[in-house]
């Protein structure tokens, strides 16, 4: 290991940290919003809607993220004339848009399952109490169901955040120079993979450490006096705990 080289590449790799963070932040924000919608559609009584939502979740969790990214970024080229007519080709030409779109859809699929579990864990008594005092459906959701569900879903969502930080590295395969993209460029030019791995890895570990702490802090802040009374489900095998 060459310490001089190691110190030399720290600023170069650090330049990728904001890119990684922005990619993750955009995808997580959009993905969370979409996940809430998907979870609600899955839980509503119309079997057609619920089935479609389940299909979305199943397909995105059962295929690798890399396929999803390539399908959107390279695959859209096959429909260029159509996309140009629609005026959206400028979007699909842009690697950043494609990366955020793929990561958003992917995290939405995983997160919707987490939110669904959270919504289902809300004690029925709380919902009935809300109805009893005359809350509308929207009020009930905004004031009772959603806050309780989010609190319950937070630990699992913390995991999802870490998985997204790792997943954002795949954006490097479609030319985006975030941490992993820069790392690959340096390795290809210097043939010193160990030093690059140590520095890039340290950045990822630092990001994940901060993210873990932030989620734990949120859990602490949102802890309510009356924790949900329904027992959490036992861990089961699901279609891929991670990507």
């Amino acid at each position: 290991m060459d310490l001089g080289f190691l110190i030399e590449i720290i600023p170069r790799l650090a330049a990728g940290v904001p890119t990684t963070l922005l990619l993750v932040a955009q995808s997580l924000a959009l993905g969370f919003a979409l996940a809430v919608v998907v979870a609600l559609v899955r839980l509503q009584p119309n079997p057609l809607g619920a089935g479609a939502a389940y299909g979305f979740v199943y397909v995105f969790r059962a295929t690798p993220l890399l396929v999803q990214i390539f399908l959107i970024y390279y695959g859209s080229g096959q429909f260029r004339p159509v996309l140009e007519d629609l005026g959206v080709w400028v979007l699909f030409r842009d690697a950043w848009f494609c990366a955020v779109l793929a990561l958003t859809l992917n995290t939405a699929a995983y997160t919707s399952e987490i939110i669904r579990a959270g919504l289902q864990s809300v004690p029925l008594g709380q919902i009935e109490a809300g109805r009893a005092v005359g809350m509308s459906r929207l009020q009930l959701f905004r004031r009772v169901t959603f806050p309780l569900a989010v609190r319950q879903a937070l630990p699992a969502y913390g995991n999802e955040v870490i998985l997204m930080v790792k997943a954002s590295s795949l954006a490097s395969t479609i030319t985006i120079l975030e941490i992993t993209g820069i790392a690959k460029t340096i390795i290809a030019a210097s043939f010193r993979p160990v030093e690059v791995f140590v520095v890039a890895g340290a950045f990822y570990l630092a990001i994940n450490f901060v993210a873990t702490r932030a989620v734990r802090f949120a859990e602490h802040r949102l802890a309510t006096a009356s924790a949900p009374t329904r027992a959490p489900a036992a861990p089961t095998r699901q279609l891929a705990a991670t990507r």
Partner: peptide, 8 residues
Amino acid sequence: RGIPELLV
């Protein structure tokens, strides 16, 4: 577990 598989 904290580092992207691609980097590994």
